[in-house]
Design a protein around this nucleic acid. Structure first.
Lengths: 130, 130
DNA sequence: TATATAATAGTAATCGTTACTAATATTAAT
DNA sequence: ATTAATATTAGTAACGATTACTATTATATA
C-alpha cells in the first residue's frame, strides 16, 4: 500500500491557499512560497496541488481562462469570472446543490458533484466605466 | 472597421461541429476536417473556434480535463463529465437559468451567463463495472 | 478587373503542466 | 538514536494545447 508522508512544502502550499480568497493559480502559489522555500520547484507545487485536490482538501476551479485556479474553501459555493479583469472571485449566494437532484432525475449515470461558475463584469470593473 | 470575411474552412468547422453531440476538442475537429481540406492547419481550426465562440455561434466547455471542448448547441443546457472515460456529454434536464437570478441577489457585478457541469460516472461506465 | 484586406498554411514559439531521476526527508522499526 | 524503507523533493527536460508570425491566397468591394 502507498502511504502519504508528511511534507513541509505541502503544508506551506496548503497554508498559503488558506490565506487567499482569490483562487490563485499554481504559478502564483509558487511565487508566494518562494520566500519561505527558496529552492521549491514548480513541479512540487503542481504535484501537491493535484494531490490535495485528489484528497479533497482543496478544490480546482476551471473557468476557461487556460489555467487552473485553486481554492482551499471546499464548502459548496460558486464562483464568478470577470471577463474584463479576469479575476475569479467567490459569489456568495444561497446553496444550489439541489440542481444535482434535478440533474439526476433523467440521467442514468451517477452524479457525484457539480461546478458552476458565473461570467460577466465584476463590480470593480463596472465602476471603472463610469 | 474590421469586417469578417467568409471562409470555407470556417464553414466546414462549424458544420462539422453541428453534426456532433460529443463536444469535440480542437484536435478532433482538425482531424475530421482533414479529408475535406487536406491542407488545413491546426492554427486555422483554433482561430475559427475562438472566433465562432466570440461571435456566440458555438460555445466552449471547460471541464478541467486540460483541453477545451466545443459545442454548436448554444441553447442553455448542461454537461456531464465522466471521470472514468473522460467523456463530456449533454445532460438533459429542466432549465436552471434562474440560478443567475439567485446569484444576482447579493452580487454587485453584472452576471451575463453561467456554466454548470456535473461530474461523476456515466451510465456506460457504471454498467461496465457489473 | 483591380484593389484592399481578411483568412490561410506552414511553422515556430509560448505557456501551463507533467515526467524523469538522483538526492533528501519522513516514517516506522529496531 | 540508528537503520531501513520509501515517499517527496529539486532540478531539469519533455510534453501537449494553444497562440503568434509571415508570406501567400481567398474573399469582398468598387
Amino acid at each position: 500500500m502507498k502511504t502519504i508522508k508528511h511534507s513541509r512544502q505541502r503544508d506551506a502550499i496548503y497554508n498559503f491557499l488558506c490565506t487567499r480568497k482569490d483562487h490563485p493559480t499554481a504559478d502564483i502559489v509558487y511565487n508566494n512560497i518562494l520566500p519561505e522555500f527558496p529552492n521549491i520547484s514548480l513541479g512540487t507545487v503542481y504535484r501537491n496541488l493535484s494531490l490535495l485536490t485528489e484528497l479533497g482538501q482543496i478544490q480546482k476551479i476551471s473557468c476557461g481562462d487556460n489555467s487552473e485556479h485553486f481554492d482551499a474553501d471546499i464548502s459548496s459555493h460558486n464562483h464568478f469570472y470577470c471577463r474584463k479583469c479576469k479575476a475569479v472571485i467567490d459569489l456568495p449566494m444561497e446553496n444550489i446543490d439541489f440542481i444535482e437532484t434535478l440533474a439526476s432525475n433523467s440521467f442514468g449515470g451517477k452524479i457525484e458533484s457539480h461546478k458552476t461558475y458565473f461570467v460577466g463584469i465584476c463590480e470593480n470593473c463596472l465602476n471603472e466605466n463610469m
